[in-house]
Design a protein around this nucleic acid. Structure first.
Lengths: 361, 361
DNA sequence: ATAGATAATTTGTACGGATAAATCAATATA
DNA sequence: TATATTGATTTATCCGTACAAATTATCTAT
């Protein structure tokens, strides 16, 4: 233990125990020299380090004062954080996903840093920048408008090169060689459509959001199903929309389709959130679900079973997706190699789909 | 410009321009003394500061070497973050609150660092420690088991003294002089109880969680209402429970109360989540809601209106609470003085409450 | 040729002294 | 009363010196 160190320790103790309070003037160098019986060098060396550590500040000619050491003490220690960038935060299926991630990673002591893109590329850029600056230990990202060319691809490349463990959920960019956890949207929508065929529906209107990969895939699945039935594939009908569209106009368009004499017997929707709105549109035309028209959603939103009639849909494994993503992330942080996950999904049949008379035996 | 500073600058330049590369040995002190024609003190002072700034490292007896200054130069930039500590993350009313906070603070460029206490004091301690270490710019906290003595009060005191803007939601600790955004739980529960009185109910069972301040306040409100009616206050009945309790046993207790001949005509529940479970208990006894027994909740959970019958409840202004908390937080970060907010709440009457025959005219 | 002891080199701690620059309080001046 | 001056106090910079402690190079004995 050197002299300047014991002087330093002694004064730190006096400060932390409150003998010298924040703002107090400390004894002058000469007094300290006498007090500790050391040379001026030793005192200055000790006080210099204290100044470096923000315990004190010095004013030439003025004196030495106790600094606000409590505030400045907080060292930006690398805290365990996992960044999550999603298109929405607290709506729809996201609470379940985030809760699942939290369950998996909180066991290992990680907190979640959330940022919301509002499905907008500018916001996405801000979010990613923030995550990179925040020194997160891992990143779980839901791509924003993933079916469109992404202007933030440069940032994604930076992320990829930064060696921050990163994985995608719900959708992913094939350009990036990063793991992902997604649904087999195309397959599942195919199954949903086939289910309608089985119940005698041949004229089906599909309404799909086409600016994200999920919507695109689901639309492909819808078309795949028709492709297997060339005999009535001419009866298929599709309305596409994007995030920025005025939904009122989309609903107008749907209404016009339904008012025609040869209107579709079923509507298959991008997701449950849309389906619930479409049900309102249908009812506003005086049509009954499922007697006049059947409606199908996707995701099994929490409220879907409480609709009247209950909405037939495919079960998005929200919570499981979160937990799996969290566990994959921990493995990646741990340096292990991981592989992507694609879920199949069960269909839940409720009352919003009618079996057509011609099919009833 | 002092001598040691010009020495320092000169060597920094030599390092950053690549004259000395990472790992290179620097000239000895004696050589530098001759080179710059200064005393050893001046060289040592300059090199000492370079060591502090991670440009070089020194080995006693060995020499001075260029440090990996590029890597250590990147300072963990203090990114704009607001920490949120809640008892739950993605269930019940919390998504709405968090979404509201996000809406308010994301405009100012803040991201949310979430941590979940699972309503447990040990987790709460971890969460608070994490927040303090993470250099958050502000803290929004929902107290954990706020009606009990809090073993983490020392940490809360540290938080208070740390000058990190902090505010509480849903409940608060009177010991801490920090702003809060809460419901007038006592008042509102009082109104709910009075509403039941008005509909002819005099024998009401209240079921309250008593380890958090909200539950305690709501129970007080229930009792306040009875206190105004001494003529039938003997008919009041209360069951209390805590987070850790086995809810099966609580439901058993409730069932036994309901099986008695003079069972209550209404049950008033701590919140909607409990009320929904209680509705199941009631039905499992073969009793009908509201014909045999009325049920009242609190919070207006998203699913409550879809129950059959729809649950009568008080409207927790979840999203507004989040937005207000976020805006208060921004003001606090901005150094403005803020004052706490207490909300009144409207009652939503659905079908789970029966007007008793004796009251019908 | 290798291991161990020794010497030289290099950085770390410490002292004393000297001057410069900023601050502060008392005094003198307008 | 307000302002300017002065001198004392206090920290900042800088020099020279000495010895300690660690490392590195050299020498010596086996």
């Amino acid at each position: 233990m050197t002299k300047y160190q014991s002087v330093k320790d002694s004064i730190i103790k006096a400060i932390t125990t409150g003998k010298y309070k924040v703002g107090d003037k400390l004894p002058t160098e000469s007094i300290l020299m006498a007090e500790y019986d050391v040379s001026r060098y030793t005192i200055r060396r000790a006080m210099g380090e204290l100044e470096n550590d923000h315990y004190i500040y010095r004013i030439q000619g003025g004196g030495m004062y106790v600094d606000d050491w409590r505030a400045k003490q907080i060292k930006p220690i690398n805290n365990k954080m996992i960044g999550i960038v999603t298109t929405h935060l607290a709506d729809y299926i996201f609470p379940s996903i985030i809760s699942g991630i939290d369950r998996a990673v909180s066991r290992a002591g990680y907190a979640l840093l959330l940022s919301n893109t509002h499905n907008d590329h500018d916001h996405e850029r801000q979010s990613l920048t923030k995550m990179l600056e925040s020194n997160v230990d891992g990143l779980i990202i839901e791509p924003t408008r993933s079916a469109l060319p992404n202007p933030n691809m440069d940032l994604y490349k930076t992320v990829e090169e930064s060696n921050i463990p990163t994985l995608f959920i719900n959708a992913h960019y094939p350009d990036l060689n990063l793991p992902y956890v997604v649904l087999k949207d195309r397959n599942i929508e195919n199954k949903l459509t086939q289910m309608l065929f089985d119940k005698g529906h041949q004229s089906i209107l599909g309404i799909f959001k086409v600016d994200d990969a999920q919507g695109e895939e689901r639309m492909r699945g819808f078309m795949d199903a028709y492709a297997r039935h060339p005999e009535f594939s001419y009866l298929s009908d599709v309305i596409m929309y994007q995030t920025a569209d005025d939904m009122g106009k989309i609903f107008e368009k749907v209404a016009r389709r339904l008012e025609q004499a040869d209107h579709p017997t079923a509507i298959i929707c991008y997701n449950d959130a849309l389906a619930i709105q479409i049900m309102d549109v249908v009812r506003s035309l005086g049509m009954k679900i499922p007697e006049d028209i059947s409606v199908v959603g996707f995701d099994d939103y929490q409220l879907s079973k409480f609709m009247t009639p209950g909405l037939t849909t495919a079960v998005h494994p929200k919570n499981k997706m979160g937990v799996d993503a969290g566990e994959l992330m921990l493995k990646m942080i741990n340096g292990e190699k991981v592989s992507s996950i694609s879920y199949d999904a069960d269909i839940i049949e409720r009352k919003s789909v009618q079996t057509l008379a011609s099919q009833k035996k």
